[in-house]
């Protein structure tokens, strides 16, 4: 499962940091660092964090389906 934060939108309210501290962290006062991949164990927390974001900057993809239609040297999508 993957996520990305739109850091143009992010204003450092840090609700995600309180709700999913293993996935989101503040670096200094305001800069957000996040783990782009997370596992089942974190799912509920990430879901809450994404819902609680005041500027709705967190995009989460819960699917772990491999990408269909790939030819070429792509490595299999595994966790």
């Amino acid at each position: 499962m993957r996520l990305v934060v739109d850091l143009n939108r992010c204003q450092g309210f840090a609700q995600c940091v309180f709700l999913a501290p293993d996935v989101f962290a503040l670096h200094g006062e305001e800069a957000l660092l996040f783990s782009p991949r997370f596992d089942e164990e974190q799912r509920d927390r990430v879901e809450k964090a994404a819902a609680a974001c005041p500027v709705q900057a967190i995009l989460v993809d819960y699917s772990d389906e491999p990408t269909r239609g790939v030819t070429g040297g792509v490595e299999p999508h595994v966790d």
Binding site: V4, P36, R37, D61, S63, G69, V70, G72
Partner: peptide, 24 residues
């Protein structure tokens, strides 16, 4: 900083795009 692995940065999808991917 070692807080995320470069190979873990695949972008989340908003939806399935049903494409033929010619990668590499």
């Amino acid at each position: 900083l070692g807080r995320a692995r470069p190979e873990d940065t695949a972008l989340p999808r908003r939806r399935d795009v049903d494409a033929a991917w010619r990668l590499g």
